[in-house]
Design a binder for these strands. Sequence first.
DNA 1: AAAGGAATCAACCGCCGTGCG
DNA 2: CCGCACGGCGGTTGATTCCTT
Length: 281
Amino acid sequence: MVRAPCCEKMGLKKGPWTPEEDQILISYIQRYGHANWRALPTQAGLLRCGKSCRLRWINYLRPDIKRGNFSTEEEETIFKLHEMLGNRWSAIAARLPGRTDNEIKNVWHTHLKKRLTQSNHNVAQQNTKRHYHERAEVVHGTNSSKYDIMENRPITSPQQSSSISDISSAISTDHDNNNNNNNNNNHTFMKADSSGKLSETADESFWSEVFTTDESNYSEVLDDFSAISSNPIVQFPSSPLVSSEPAVHACCSNIHGDDMDFWHDFFTKAGDDLQELLAEL
DNA sequence: AAAGGAATCAACCGCCGTGCG
DNA sequence: CCGCACGGCGGTTGATTCCTT
């Protein structure tokens, strides 16, 4: 049996929602839930299509929506996640409790993108290969002068810092200073060894920079990577400050044959020493 | 105070993946 | 397996508000 035709557009209202419509939608969802968006407006007595009802609820009427300006911490998180995920607004929103994809998208296009452009303009994009070479040394522990053991993170000069860290510091240095201790665990990334046990490895900025060296869309790369790995570790961490790179790192241990060659080439773009790093995995 | 441009953001559009029949 | 409805998503629009001159 074929389903009923898609929403009848005749007579359906468009444009801004009135307070009365909002109240009808809120009351209905509170009482009956929203199992079927298409049927909802008819049952609730609204002259709207299901999509419009869903959008209104998701982006505006939900009780857990956080209104108001984005905090510095939230903006910083958006920068980091956008660097890693691209325009996957729903994925970014999932890591920002109370914020919607639409809201984040708007903030990005109205505020943050401009800041990013300005930041990129100011940051020198020089000596990339040398930079990753040094970073690889850090991972191998052969260049302790560039690695703060106590802080478990590399020491970078302003000229070497990534776009992510530049943006972050541009937004706020106080926040970082106040939260360094709390965030230390988030900056420490893990990888799986041959037994599947997690062990400590490079820090967050290291992996961010590895992946941002490639001009291609990071999210596509990540998707490809996840698709070829059966490692159950491949999960997006729940904390908004933790990127997906450790998961990518972890699933290297399951990659063989042609796939291994692909990723070998991919990492080669970031510097010859990274070949050794991948070989370790 | 008025006009015009810029910024903001709610809402729509169209596409895509998924699941049902 | 195919076609369709549906939910979800990202891109875009346009009305409104804010700012500058």
